[in-house]
């Protein structure tokens, strides 16, 4: 993957986060480089989702610093980080069930759509132009994810695999520079997993988006990731290419296990 540069997109410096007495993240130092596909792995409760939440701004770390594109964003609130280009696909389904597929994607692009409430009431001129402009962009994503046939269906009525894909589409509609995927393949069958892996790789390669992937399916992770970071009990225990990680005795002991 020659596209991976050595420019740091995101830098985490000695991040600490604890809930009550439990230390969820312990002195995490991590750099995410522009254009790479980084996978976070580790047992349940190791702090992977916590770390994503810190990057997103949903949790504020107790101590430490988060730098994004060279700028300190530790105290930038959740909502504004989305505007900076950090998008998230959640664990499970977190769609707007009452909206159609199209509207879910358009809602993802909400902050790109620029018109005021008065033109919204009248729905002529600027409002209509903006809606059509955004629609064109969103249709590209719909085309890309092959969800044309459910464009106008309420997402609440769709099967899980499709909903997950729409969730990915909604994140893409935010035109992110950094895409955080929290277990995008949980609960999927093999075919759906293959589809999802293909979409993730395509986003990564065609759109050049930097991706952080949390996933338990080792087969997928080892195949798609450029680099892996392993967590255990809130600590980073290893970091490296898939080959290095699969041979690392610490990782095998904590997570991968030994073949019997």
């Amino acid at each position: 993957m020659e596209k991976t540069s050595q420019t740091e997109l995101l830098q985490l410096k000695s991040l600490n986060l604890s809930f009550g007495g439990v230390s969820a993240l312990n002195q995490i130092d991590l750099s995410i480089y522009e254009g790479e596909l980084l996978a976070l792995i580790g047992p349940n409760g190791a702090g992977k989702t916590c770390l994503l939440n810190c990057i997103n701004g949903f949790y504020k770390p107790d101590t430490g610093q988060i730098k994004y594109k060279g700028r300190d964003i530790t105290s930038v609130p959740l909502r504004n980080r989305a505007h900076l280009g950090i998008a998230r696909v959640f664990q499970g389904i977190q769609l707007y069930e009452g909206l159609s597929t199209l509207d879910n994607l358009l809602a993802g692009a909400h902050f790109f759509i620029d018109y005021n409430i008065l033109s919204a009431f009248l729905y002529v001129g600027k409002a209509k132009r903006e809606e059509i402009r955004q629609r064109r962009k969103v249709e590209e994503i719909i085309d890309f994810l092959e969800i044309e046939h459910v464009r106008k269906k309420r997402v609440g009525e769709l099967p899980y695999g499709l909903q997950k894909r729409i969730d990915l589409g909604r994140a893409m509609a935010m035109s992110p520079d950094l895409l955080l995927l929290d277990e995008p393949m949980a609960g999927m069958n093999l075919e759906e997993k293959e589809d999802m892996a293909r979409f993730i790789l395509d986003i990564h390669e065609e759109w050049g988006t930097t991706i952080v992937l949390v996933e338990h399916d080792m087969g997928v992770v080892m195949d798609v990731a450029d680099r892996l970071v392993v967590f255990d009990f809130g600590q980073k225990i290893a970091e490296g290419t898939p080959d290095e990680i699969s041979k690392n005795p610490k990782v095998i002991g904590a997570y991968l296990g030994v073949e019997v």
Binding site: L78, R79, A82, A87, Q94, L95, A107, H110, F111
Partner: peptide, 12 residues
């Protein structure tokens, strides 16, 4: 209405 936390993640 449907998911205010996700909405906030999406920058709304």
């Amino acid at each position: 209405r449907d998911n205010d936390i996700a909405a906030e993640f999406m920058g709304l």
